[in-house]
């Protein structure tokens, strides 16, 4: 049970303002989930570099040493290249010019306790417990550049209030999923995915949704088809926002109780749990504002 605010900036001139726009949106949905928060920001040059994999790890006190990871990646890293470790707020970023799976494998072997919250070349995922506004401040959201971004505030329902249980769930390269609602058969879907070899990090129902989408994408579905399939498999109440390297999708369950509102202009498309999160976006007065219809998948590409 939560608040969602997501923004895709089509007009590149707005992208330097991504952080400040998303901060404003986030402030308005805090009431819907003051336990914890998560952010995903795409295409921020200070966080991500194309051609380099970046892992977002939960926590700032992991004491990860680049040398440990380099030793495990010795065969894979290009000549003279090394991995890079940075701390952003409560998140540790590890980057290297290797495939994401290889980097994740090296981190897992060197630091088995580390939890990967985000992965890919274009996205950084920052999650933490505590008041969402403070979480955003600690990560310096306000000044961030970005092409797409998602924020989520969480009121935990049936799983613990932890950074790992916060959204977004990013379980495949550059893929993020956030959820408002509650899946009613996630345990069965989880078992089936586990049988197929999918591994899980948390007990959260939303992770099941994210793993399911990642699984379908891997099977060859496009994003829209993956979400249509999700609707056939996962039961319950949901409003979902899914982002990939270059697109954003919104879908609600057929009963559509959980709120969602979309606003769209030539410059941007935004989705939020409530209108008040959209109220300060530039040009909102002339935006096309509508509620997504039940069971229908909406997608937008950069």
């Amino acid at each position: 049970m939560c608040g969602i605010a997501a923004l895709q900036l089509r007009n590149p001139q707005l992208r330097p303002k991504m952080g400040s726009l998303l901060s404003t949106m986030l402030c308005e949905i805090v009431d819907r989930g003051p336990d914890s928060a998560g952010l995903a920001v795409y295409d921020n040059p200070e966080l991500n570099t194309l051609g380099k994999s970046t892992l977002s790890l939960l926590g700032a006190d992991l004491e990860i040493s680049s040398a440990d990871i380099d030793a495990l990646l010795a065969e894979l890293l290009p000549e003279g290249a090394t991995s890079e470790v940075r701390i952003v707020g409560d998140t540790t970023l590890v980057s290297a010019e290797v495939a994401t799976e290889d980097l994740a494998g090296a981190v897992a072997r060197a630091y088995p306790e580390a939890v990967v919250a985000g992965r890919g070349e274009r996205v950084t995922v920052m999650k933490s417990v505590g008041h969402p506004v403070e979480v955003a401040e600690r990560h310096g959201l306000e000044g961030m550049y970005g092409s797409q971004a998602v924020s989520h505030t969480r009121m935990a329902t049936e799983s613990a209030v932890t950074a790992g249980g916060s959204h977004p769930f990013s379980v495949a390269n550059d893929l993020c999923l956030v959820h408002n609602g509650s899946f009613s058969n996630h345990a069965s879907v989880r078992r089936e995915l586990k049988r197929l070899g999918v591994e899980f990090d948390s007990e959260n129902d939303t992770e099941v949704g994210a793993r399911y989408v990642a699984h379908r994408l891997q099977q060859g579905d496009d994003l829209e088809t993956a979400l249509v399939n999700l609707g056939k498999v996962l039961d319950g109440f949901y409003t979902l926002v899914v982002t990939t390297a270059d697109s954003m999708a919104v879908v609600r369950d057929p009963i559509a109780c959980k709120p969602a509102i979309i606003a769209e202009t030539d410059d941007w498309v935004a989705m939020a749990s409530e209108f008040r999160a959209l109220a300060e976006l530039p040009g909102i007065e002339n935006a096309r504002i509508f509620e997504p219809e039940p069971g229908r998948v909406y997608t937008w590409s950069l």
Binding site: G3, N180, S182
Partner: peptide, 14 residues
């Protein structure tokens, strides 16, 4: 069985 104008704790708070 459900309230007509809210579902879940985030709406209940409102």
């Amino acid at each position: 069985c459900r309230h007509p104008d809210w579902t879940g704790p985030d709406d209940l708070e409102i």
